[in-house]
Simulated scan of single mutants.
Amino acid sequence: MTVLSPMSETFYPQFFEQLVTDYANENVTSGRWMPENALTRSQDEIARSLPQGVATPDHHLFEIRTDVDGQIVGYIWFAVSERQGERSAFIYEVSVFSEFRRQGHARAAFLQLEEKVRELGLKSIGLNVFYHNSAAQALYTSLGYTPTNLTMVKALKAL
C-alpha cells in the first residue's frame, strides 16, 4: 500500500538534490533552458521557492512510501495559492523513482493528495506538465485533470 508521509528533514537534502537535477534536465529537454547554466538556475529557483525547506509556509512536501514505515519510492510537493479569491493547490513536483514506476504509486499518491487538499479547504489542484512527458499526461488525464492552456515556442535560426 502506498502512503504519503510528511517529508522529513533527513530526506529533504536528497529531495532537493534530485529535484534540482530533474528540473534542470526537464527544462533543457523542453528547450526552455540552455544546458550551460541549467543546474545553477534550477538550484536558485528551488531555493527561492523553499527558503525554509520543509518548514516553508504554505508548501507541503511529502515522501511517497510503500507503507507507513516503508521504503521511500518518491516525493510530491504542492503549495497553497490564491487566485481571484479562491484558494487552491498547485503541484510543483511529483516523482516516483525509476525502479518503482508503473506500480501504481503515483496514482495512489495523487488520490491521497486530493484528500489532504480537501482537508485544507482548497477548491482545486493544478499542475504543469512538460509537453514531452506523455506518460505523466496520460496519468493526469486518467485522474480527471484537464488542460487549461498550452504554451508554444518557436526557435529562430540565426541569420
Rank of each mutant, 00 (worst) to 15 (best):
M1W: 04
T2G: 04
T2P: 12
S5P: 01
P6V: 04
S8G: 06
S8F: 07
E9K: 12
E9V: 08
Y12K: 01
P13K: 04
E17V: 13
E17C: 10
Q18S: 15
Q18T: 15
V20F: 04
V20Y: 09
T21M: 14
T21E: 15
T21G: 04
D22T: 13
Y23R: 00
T29V: 14
T29Q: 02
S30P: 03
R32W: 09
W33F: 09
P35G: 11
E36I: 14
E36H: 13
E36G: 10
N37T: 12
A38H: 09
A38T: 14
L39Y: 08
L39E: 09
L39N: 12
R41Q: 13
S42H: 02
E45G: 13
R48A: 12
S49N: 03
S49T: 09
L50G: 03
P51Q: 03
T56V: 02
T56Y: 10
P57S: 03
P57D: 11
P57L: 05
D58G: 06
H59L: 01
H59T: 06
H60C: 03
F62G: 00
I64R: 09
I64A: 02
R65F: 06
D67P: 04
D67V: 13
D67S: 14
V68W: 02
G70L: 11
Q71P: 11
I72Q: 02
I72L: 00
V73H: 10
G74C: 09
Y75T: 09
W77N: 05
F78M: 07
F78S: 08
R83Q: 06
Q84N: 14
G85M: 05
R87F: 11
S88W: 06
S88G: 15
S88D: 01
A89I: 00
A89F: 01
A89E: 02
F90M: 02
Y92E: 09
E93H: 09
V94M: 12
S95V: 14
S95F: 14
V96E: 07
S98F: 10
S98Q: 13
F100M: 04
R101G: 03
R102F: 03
Q103A: 08
H105L: 02
H105T: 10
H105F: 03
L111W: 08
L111S: 00
L111Y: 07
Q112Y: 00
Q112G: 05
L113Q: 10
L113R: 00
E114P: 00
E115N: 10
K116F: 14
V117R: 00
R118H: 10
R118K: 15
G121K: 06
K123I: 07
I125C: 06
I125R: 03
G126C: 05
G126N: 13
L127G: 02
L127Q: 08
L127I: 03
V129F: 11
Y131C: 08
Y131W: 14
N133Y: 01
S134G: 00
A135P: 08
T141W: 00
S142I: 04
S142G: 11
L143R: 01
L143G: 07
G144F: 04
Y145W: 15
T146K: 11
T148F: 08
T148G: 11
T148P: 06
N149F: 10
L150F: 11
T151Y: 15
V153A: 12
V153S: 11
V153H: 11
K154L: 02
K154N: 07
K154H: 01
L156D: 00
K157A: 12
K157Q: 10
K157E: 13
A158T: 08
A158K: 13
L159W: 03
L159G: 15
